[in-house]
Amino acid sequence: MTQIKPEKTNRQNWMAVLAKANWTDLAMLWDDFGNKPDFKILRPAETGLIMLRARTGAVGAAFNMGEATVTRSSVVSDSQIQGHAYILGRNGLHAEVAAEVDAALQDDALHQVVMARIINPLKTAASNKKHQAQQKTAATKVDFFTLVRGED
């Protein structure tokens, strides 16, 4: 039941943060980021489908449960670094910006400042939001107890 999963790479982690980011937050942070490299579009944003798989009984054999819309985009920076993004939904701009940030993060000269000014704030925002939801859920925690029936 517990599958051993390989540790995620840094790139996988930041790509996940970018994919899950609130679009307006990401757009604002990237807008305010001065000195961006120039980017050329390698593959314009394209929306398609991914078939989502689930497991029989949550842990058994896989089956196809239904699809989701996904938008992907690929860019290349002026220093020839490629950035890619695959994001749930149909927001082409989100995919394009995520691809740009992915490229910037692979640039040694930019990596730290992009982490500090884009990824970390997005991560904090996401974990705050998650924590809020968890707190509200926690307030509905229930302790049922059974009563002894009156018959012998």
């Binding site: 039941m1 517990t2 599958q3 394209e46 929306t47 398609g48 489908l49 991914i50 078939m51 989502l52 798989r53 689930a54 497991r55 949550a58 842990v59 896989a62 196809n64 449960m65 989701a68 819309t69 996904v70 992907r72 695959y86 998650k130 939801a133 968890q134 859920t137």
Partner: peptide, 18 residues
């Protein structure tokens, strides 16, 4: 819409429970 492929099976054990 064009099809990009199949996802990894969802890992519902790691769900953020609501």
């Amino acid at each position: 819409l064009t099809s990009f492929g199949y996802s990894q099976p969802l890992n519902t054990s790691e769900m953020q429970v609501l």
